[in-house]
Nucleic acid binder design. Structure first.
Lengths: 154, 154
DNA sequence: TAAGATTGAACGCTCAATCTTT
DNA sequence: AAAGATTGAGCGTTCAATCTTA
């Protein structure tokens, strides 16, 4: 059995795995709770992601938004079509590059963004309860470093 | 503007939000890297999740597996049908409860699990590079606490 | 040629309904 | 009734191909 002999490397990898499994569980948990609370207000996670990100950073291209959301650009394209038809999002032509569409929230979009933020804050606040500012900063740093290493992988 | 006046609470929430965004980014990053490396070997993330979890904890029910994978039980049912047809997984009757199917990897399934583990270890090792055992333990604890609070939300 | 965006086909997942067993 | 598992409909996402502009 593999339980008989374990190198130091394997033991360390196990700690790393456990840590990562905890992250995955927490992520999924957050996702499902957020989805549930957003659904109460008539929103979906997909729309939430787009709207929140456009509020934080307007005038993005669709590509950039797709990258941020870790979604295929085709999916973003279709989602934005709906959001545009519903009057939440504007797809403005770029002055320099005619291929590009610059994305912005409409006033209605901003109103929805505000309501989504209330839900988001409920979840974020619950997650951070009992964590110090220092802990939160360290978590950010740790995750940024992990992201960095993942990006360079292979 | 909301940037003019900020309560302490809002500032703290921002640290929490930044931390969480870093976690989300890292999770997505890991997911896509893992998907890429698994695809090189002919595997999908969905199959990987099921196989790895069955290796770690055999004789689970489909419900339990679906919960662990944060997937609808119907999806798991369909996926297991494929895995059973391919000879990776056995769905054995439960002695006490005829409704239940107990899940196990076949020898072939174990072989694939081993190959998947090699990929997993590459990713996990890269992520944990430079992190101490203490850091990994703290990360696990932090995430477990956050999970706990999320579960109690609402 | 390459990059941003769109389209349509295919796939996977979810939701609701159903069947079986408890 | 309630719980485990399955089925089928519907939706959302991805992948590949296409169009337009650089």
């Amino acid at each position: 059995m593999s339980t008989k002999v374990r190198t130091t490397k394997q033991v360390e990898a196990e700690h790393a795995l456990n840590a990562w499994l905890a992250v995955v569980k927490t992520y999924n948990m957050c996702d499902s709770q957020l989805a549930r609370l957003l659904a109460n207000e008539g929103y979906t996670i997909a729309k939430y992601e787009v709207v929140i990100r456009l509020k934080r950073e307007p005038d993005q291209t669709q590509q950039a938004l797709a990258d941020q959301c870790f979604q295929a650009k085709s999916g973003i394209s279709m989602l934005l079509k709906v959001l545009e038809e519903d009057g939440w999002v504007l797809r403005l032509p770029d002055a320099q590059d005619a291929r590009v569409k610059r994305l912005r929230l409409s006033p209605i979009g901003h109103t929805h963004a505000q309501r989504m933020l209330i839900v988001q804050n409920r979840v974020i606040t619950a997650m951070a309860e009992g964590m110090s500012k220092a802990q939160l900063l360290e978590l950010s740093q740790t995750m940024d470093q992990v992201s960095e290493r993942l990006m360079r992988l292979e």
